[in-house]
């Protein structure tokens, strides 16, 4: 539906040169990731990004059902879903929405790029992304956490992908929009990046930006990526370092 009524009660998104939550335009929300949080899964991660709360489980490689199996390589099956209680308003549907189906597909595409699929022919690697609480930028949050869960599972990959959304808020290009900014901003541009060479693995967008704003957004994403990558790596080594620390102290 075209929905322009929302713009009628649009809040002031920029106040005194700061964003609605007091951030600078290039400032990320607080991001915390913990690896290996689920016992059953082969790999897992829990992430809090702003008020987003995201849980990711990785299962596999396991035998793929015949209709899905590729005799030459593994198949990535990502499933993005929003918990019915994840939103601030109302109760979510239980069936996968068309939005969820699309996000699941583009997320599968991202990880099909980096995972060493040829090593596991005929298998399936499941990436289950559950958005427990949503606060804008959930697909990027899901991908960033899924990367950690895959590495935590010991699945060989070319790179540790991160994802983040850039946006245009009025005439300002900004990074990592929250829910309110997402609802009222003029463009939300999620990127997934392979940091080794800054290749773009996911790029989706609708709204309106000029070519110059697009370039500014790209640069802001790469800059923010340095922080995100570091947090991902810290999460991965943390549980191992904690064991080491026990002995260093003795």
């Amino acid at each position: 539906m075209i929905n322009l009524a929302s713009s009628l009660n649009k809040p002031e998104l920029i106040v005194n040169g700061k964003r609605i939550d007091g951030r600078d335009f290039n400032e990320l929300r607080p991001l915390k990731i913990e690896a290996g949080v689920l016992k059953n899964a082969d790999g897992s991660a829990y992430e809090e990004w702003g008020d987003n709360k995201v849980l990711v489980a990785v299962y596999g490689p396991k035998e793929a059902p015949r209709y899905l199996a590729d005799p030459n390589k593994a198949v990535i099956k990502a499933k993005y879903s929003m918990a019915s209680f994840s939103g601030l308003n109302g109760h979510g549907r239980s069936n996968p929405s068309r939005r969820e189906i699309e996000i699941s597909k583009v997320t599968s595409d991202v990880f099909s790029n980096v995972v060493d699929l040829a090593q596991f022919p005929g298998s399936e690697i499941d990436i289950d992304i559950e958005i427990l609480q949503s606060d804008g930028g959930t697909r990027a949050a899901g991908i960033t956490a899924a990367s950690v869960a895959l590495a935590n599972a010991g699945i060989p990959m070319k790179d540790l992908v991160y994802a983040v959304s850039a946006a245009r808020i009025e005439d300002k290009v900004s990074i990592d929009v929250n829910m309110i900014e997402d609802n009222y901003s003029d463009a939300d541009i999620p990127f997934a990046i392979s940091p080794r060479n800054n290749d773009v693995l996911l790029l989706q967008f609708d709204g309106g930006v000029t070519r110059e704003q697009m370039k500014e957004a790209e640069n802001m994403v790469i800059e923010a990526g340095k922080t995100i990558s570091k947090i991902q790596k810290d999460a991965l080594k943390k549980s191992y370092e904690e064991v080491s620390k026990q002995y260093e102290e003795k």
Binding site: V106, I189, V200, L203, Q204, G207, T210, E218, I222
Partner: peptide
């Protein structure tokens, strides 16, 4: 449209560099 980028979608598992996108 005449002035702005209105929507973008990268698909499939391959990648593009930022330069290619621009």
């Amino acid at each position: 449209d005449d002035k702005q980028i209105r929507a973008l979608q990268k698909g499939l598992s391959g990648s593009f560099s930022m330069d290619e996108i621009n």
